[in-house]
């Protein structure tokens, strides 16, 4: 039984923590933008892709310069730089595309449509510059596999995960902690929460709302670059990398309650787990119990066939929207 549980851990828990970290980090960005600017920012997935490509270019640059840290994938070393660059670009995108519309007091729908336009522009530019093929951070470096033996009798399997997965989780913990401290301890972070809570009152209180908007874009851009690079490190780098994943991220933001960063983090992991668990073959866990089960365990029991993995998030998204649009963790938001 232990062997089967380890198999479950490797295939479901590890995968869902890795995927969940990506959803959580990106979902926080979506939810902050919604909280402060009150619109669904569809171009978030492309900010992720852009960040990942910037990291990729930087990694190549570091490799040619011979800069590296032994034992650490270059992708992680360049990530902070990519985050800074993407934050600057996110800030620029706001200035160029969203700020003029806000000034005109355009509706949230207009901003949403504009974000579709930004999606297309960024996506087009990425493909124009990088082509439409796939690339990997691990063409020259190797992705290390970490195996931890379990010191129990009769256990043959080891707990497996890759080094990038471990680093991803660590970085997510760091990012979430920093974000938490920022939101609860710093004046600007509190002002951000205040504006998400009640934008009119924030303005009336004399809070510099333009500054808060700027900081929001910078944080969202940096987190998007982080999530995108992590995704590229875990899977591979493609121009439509994040376009496919933007809906699960919206699902995380909505399930967590739009405007609620902590909800988005929890929901990110929840959706990551749901996706991994839905395609897991539960027969593996049932088979050792065959002796006490009244029926014969089939070869394969999955909630959905593997090819429907992403669909799980869409279904969760639609169900939550219909059942409780304000999110399942906390009520009232907007």
């Amino acid at each position: 039984m232990m062997n089967e549980l380890i198999f479950f851990f490797n295939n479901v828990v590890v995968a869902s923590i890795a995927l969940g970290s990506i959803y959580a980090v990106a979902g926080v960005g979506v939810t902050l933008i919604f909280g402060i600017l009150r619109f669904a920012h569809f171009a978030h997935g492309d900010m992720m892709t852009m960040g990942a490509f910037l990291a990729f270019v930087l990694a190549g640059l570091f490799a040619t310069l011979g800069w590296s840290v032994p034992g650490l994938p270059t992708g992680f070393i360049v990530m902070p730089i990519a985050m800074v660059l993407t934050a600057i670009i996110a800030f620029g995108l706001d200035k160029a595309f969203y700020a003029p519309l806000r000034k005109r007091k355009a509706s949230s729908v207009t901003l949403l449509i504009a974000s579709i336009g930004v999606t297309l522009i960024v996506q087009g530019l990425i493909r124009l510059i990088f082509g439409s093929g796939a690339a990997s951070f691990f063409e020259t470096e190797t992705k290390q596999l970490i195996r931890i033996p379990v010191p129990l009798e009769g256990v043959t399997r080891t707990i497996n995960f890759t080094q990038p997965q471990l680093l991803m989780v660590l970085m997510t913990i760091v990012a979430v902690t920093v974000l938490h401290l920022f939101l609860t301890r710093s004046r600007l972070g509190k002002a951000m929460r205040a504006m998400a809570d009640n934008a009119d009152l924030a303005q009336v209180s004399g809070i510099n709302t333009k500054l808060v908007v700027r900081v929001t874009w910078i944080i969202a851009g940096a987190l998007a670059a982080m999530a995108g690079t992590m995704l590229a490190l875990d899977v591979q780098l493609k121009p439509d990398l994040a376009f496919n994943i933007v809906l699960p991220i919206f699902a995380a933001a909505i399930v967590g309650g739009l405007g609620q960063p902590y909800g988005a983090i929890a929901a990110g992991y929840l959706i990551g787990f749901a996706e991994s668990a839905a395609i897991f073959n539960w027969s593996v866990l049932l088979r050792p119990l065959q002796g006490i089960l009244p029926f014969e365990v089939p070869v394969s029991i999955t909630f959905v066939p593997t090819e429907y993995k992403l669909t799980v998030a869409f279904v969760i998204l639609v169900v939550v929207l219909l059942w409780r649009p304000t999110g399942i963790f906390k009520g009232a938001s907007s």
Partner: peptide
Amino acid sequence: ESRASQMRVFVLGIVITVAIR
């Protein structure tokens, strides 16, 4: 060739953002 075929996505994005503004 493959780059040019992606140009349309970019153009579409420009068109929609310009139009909406």
